[in-house]
Design a protein around this nucleic acid. Sequence first.
DNA 1: CTGCTGCATTGACGCAGAACAACAAGACCC
DNA 2: GGGTCTTGTTGTTCTGCGTCAATGCAGCAG
Lengths: 269, 269
Amino acid sequence: MLPGAPAPVIMCAKPGDDRHVKDVPSLNQIRQACSSCSLRQLCLPYGVAETDLDQLERIVSRRKPVPGGEPLFRQGEQLGALYAVRSGSVKTHALSRDGNEQITGFHFPGELVGLDALSADVHGCTATTLETTTVCAIPFDRLDELAGRIPGLRRQLLRLMSRELVEDEQMLLLVGQKTAEQRLAALLLSISTRFQSRGYSATEFNLSMSRDDIGNYLGLAVETVSRLFTRFQSDRVLRVRRKNVQILDLERLHVIAGVGPSGPSRAQA
Amino acid sequence: MLPGAPAPVIMCAKPGDDRHVKDVPSLNQIRQACSSCSLRQLCLPYGVAETDLDQLERIVSRRKPVPGGEPLFRQGEQLGALYAVRSGSVKTHALSRDGNEQITGFHFPGELVGLDALSADVHGCTATTLETTTVCAIPFDRLDELAGRIPGLRRQLLRLMSRELVEDEQMLLLVGQKTAEQRLAALLLSISTRFQSRGYSATEFNLSMSRDDIGNYLGLAVETVSRLFTRFQSDRVLRVRRKNVQILDLERLHVIAGVGPSGPSRAQA
DNA sequence: CTGCTGCATTGACGCAGAACAACAAGACCC
DNA sequence: GGGTCTTGTTGTTCTGCGTCAATGCAGCAG
């Protein structure tokens, strides 16, 4: 996932990364210090008063790194905890009754996974790591209780859920009425922006998901995705080598995503 | 979006357009008795203890009926209140920067509208009545404060948001990988189910939204929607006359929506 | 090295559904 | 009554993208 890292090495969790703790209380659950986490402005702690932060820290536990391809939780399981991605990346995907699978999102450090389980206390999707990933687990019942006492935390939880709503709605627009070209451009821009806000390069990164995943997420066939990468490359918008992507012309990518190649007034897919 | 956008400015309220917004408070804002509302199991009161209900009632106000085609709030406006539909129906729709409009949902009695504004304190979509509609307004800051004190209310608010997440994700599946036929069947079934749970007929109803709205929502051209209605009718699955729809073969509609006419293992759009 | 396996790319072809266009049916107004 | 506007239906044409199929290529085991 990191620029230039061909092997899915553990993504540097920058400061606050204390992988070498000796006094391990438990092997796979380590008390987390949100107050010193580099992701705190993106994650749950944002908006929580300094003085309340230790209460949150007390219920959050960091899990040991999970290898790629493993589930954090499965569709249908009882809701136990929400997960905050610390490093690496996660896809969430749901199987419908007729056997179709749909990827509902890709999740990067600082993002919360599992929010759709709050409606029925059962996970509505499976969360699978796309590479070696570390997460923080936040037991929901304790979070809920805490949200009653800490207004900032309650507000932030609602904000994160609402943000996911907005994102899903943008995806609906994308999948409902944009061309394949526009969809892929929009995805790349979304990833680029999210990486940038986490301190990584906006113009070069490794895609942790497969072409299959991308196609499924965007409602396209794998072959179409592949062809688009090729086209973008020959148009000098991207440089693509396997999972590694360099954005050569960010401006043009924006134009493609927003207006499309067929003129500004086309209003359909 | 960036360059050639013909100034798709966020619409602002026309002067004199807010007659039902201000006006005499006593006339258009009536204290609501959630405890006796027939929609309480669907709406915010669900899960709130009998004894706490009066606190909720104190902040909820019922507005006088809004004629069809009028906005409850507009994209870009500051978040003031959430709205619970009491009767009638509402569509929410968002204008993207490049001028595309996407309907993000249809909302029936008991459903909450405006939740996507919690992420940025600004409405991310416009809510427009599809017919004469009455709503309850719930000032968000007071609701938030109340949610801190009443665990059941907090839980229900989260549940409603999460439910909308799940719905959006199902829509993604629908729009991303189902045929036009499957999409329309799924929409009709969704409406049917929702009507039923509100005590109306599951097999005969009037669609309050136009064919245009349906097409936009499902990611289809109007013409396709129209043709599908015709086809369903000649297949004796529906009887359609303008807005009025009778479901003649609910079973078959389920089959169409779930598996599709082209065999059980097709996995495409 | 060789073969195997899983992903990615490329080509050829066909079809679902979009675009274009004309028309029908209400609804509303003068 | 007869215009005009809006909304829905139907016919025809055209195309973006899905499907099928073959090939390329990296990683891994033996």
